[in-house]
Design a binder for these strands. Structure first.
Lengths: 128, 128, 128, 128
DNA sequence: GTGGTCTAGACCACT
DNA sequence: GTGGTCTAGACCACT
């Protein structure tokens, strides 16, 4: 499904979170689709199941997946994802990032066209 | 100059880095202007000079300041800030962020107008 | 593993960097092999762990090793060692050195045959 | 004549040494030619004369210049420059550098052709 | 047990 | 007075 990068200094559970999140955002994992079970993923990545569990727990808190006891974890359908705190947080991060890019003299047109592309790509995913 | 947030889980040196960087990016600290000396800042924040030193060293690696032994640390003049690795890194972070915002159905117009504002603000700083 | 030279004026962490680098370049430490842990090396050299940490951090920045929290530090596999900035830097140092040797009337054939030998030696290491 | 780089972490007197040495090696300063006086250079670089003095003293020790009291400092004619200790030192540095470049898979042909060029350039300087 | 952070404090080189 | 090095030692997060 994906690979861990041991050169990366972030903890393994953070990496797992990011990878799963990326799969959801990119549309590889669809709403209500089952994500791999903790044991399954632990085995395929050859790491401790506790590490996977921690990642899934945080993904649930952030609203990306929901767990059903004895069934597994599933992708939260999109209309549930309106998490205002998370949204505010992301917008704040965006501001910091853009300010830094502006300071580095990256032309704003480059950023805007990149955004257009990413939104276009997202739109297509939804129509699948 | 600024305050540390001891509730924040990120390491102190990271917080210091972010604060100094924000002062540079926002134009409060101008190119070639002296930033507080290691000891001075350590005293005013009542933390260990080693922690400041670490923050400054990383800011130097990222190209924001340069340190001169026996003289102090100074804001890198803007034309030196062309750090390709850092730029690539920031653009990658931007992509992740925007993808997530798109997934949350934030209208792209909101992002774009935010970017326009931030660039406009930066342009004004340069004219001071 | 190696010894420090307290007569040497260069800082201890620099000496440690050079020694580890030499072990990697000479093929004593193989790709993905574990280098001694920070504490282990500190104990065997009877110096402070912070000093080892600093040396390892710089070796990581230069691309020679990578550190994994809770696991240890490891030799970067060779294909990852393409660090353009470092390469440029070394080539520049080479130019300065060769110019000085030329000025001293060292015959260029001596330098070239020395280079041939060193490359031959490296080739053999790879075949181990 | 040249400029100091305050971004460079090496002490000012080291930088001055390197700059003067480069002028000698490149043939800009010819054998027995006068190098700028301590005061003159101190004034043009707006630094303390002691710093220049230290640089010149070390250049004299390494055999690049000689001082004549009340007259100034001059470039040592080339046949005096056979300083065996310095030579050995440079050859050792060359070995370290080449080993590192070999480890980085820089083709040896690149190094050799660079050396040929530098020697050719030196030969032309001598014929001026 | 591992690397990473931080404090407290000494001492050095350089200007 | 400045940044840089180093020690001694505590404590943390992660596996």
């Amino acid at each position: 499904m994906f690979q861990l990068d041991y050169m990366d200094h972030s903890p393994l559970y953070e990496q797992i979170k990011e990878k799963i999140k990326a799969l959801i955002i990119s549309g590889v994992l669809k709403p209500d689709e089952k994500v791999p079970s903790v044991r399954e993923l632990a085995q395929s990545l050859t790491i401790n199941p506790n590490t996977i569990h921690k990642a899934y727990k945080e993904l649930e808190l952030e609203g990306y997946i929901y767990s059903v006891r004895a069934k597994g974890s599933f992708v939260t359908p999109i209309y549930n994802k309106i998490n205002q705190a998370r949204k505010d947080n992301l917008l704040l991060e965006l501001e910091k990032l853009v300010s830094e890019l502006a300071y580095m003299n990256i032309p704003k047109e480059q950023l805007i066209s990149r955004i257009e592309e990413l939104y276009e790509r997202g739109r297509q995913k939804n129509n699948d």
